[in-house]
């Protein structure tokens, strides 16, 4: 576990949100995003990672009219306003799916599975949906 720092608001912990599922087929991507937006108010050290089919959550050209569900993908662009700036996408997951960062709707940092594993090990709390 990493060191906990104290600031005037209390404890700051490292929270990682692990997204491994494609959007729309299940509600996990949407409800995960809802947690992240609430988490922003707690001034914690937040990282969002997109691994496996989770990378599809960030696809640029999502149009959901035809399946009559909410297109929440623009919300990822708003995360910056909530001071959530650590978005990581795994290289192996992109490669396996023939995707590049050009396919994604927000700027992200691409990291290898090994780097992702190191980052995960440094967390205090890992939330997976």
């Amino acid at each position: 576990m990493s060191d906990e720092m104290m600031d005037e608001g209390g404890v700051v912990k490292k929270f990682m949100y692990v997204n491994r599922k494609a959007p729309h087929g299940t509600i996990y991507a949407l409800e995960s995003l809802e947690v992240v937006l609430i988490a922003a108010a707690f001034d914690q050290d937040v990282s969002l990672v997109f691994v496996d089919d989770g990378v599809y959550q960030l696809m640029k050209e999502q149009k959901t009219d035809g399946i009559e569900v909410k297109n929440f993908s623009p919300t990822y662009r708003a995360l910056e306003m909530y001071d959530i700036e650590k978005l990581y996408v795994e290289k192996e997951s992109l490669d396996a799916r023939g995707l590049t960062t050009d396919d994604l709707l927000v700027p992200v940092e691409v990291m290898s599975a090994a780097e992702m594993a190191d980052l995960m090990a440094q967390q205090d709390v890992v939330l997976s949906f």
């Binding site: 491994r20 995960m120 090990a121 205090d124 890992v126 997976s128």
Partner: peptide
């Protein structure tokens, strides 16, 4: 063994 990651 913290932290704990659930691979769901």
């Amino acid at each position: 063994n913290g932290p704990v990651q659930a691979w769901l």
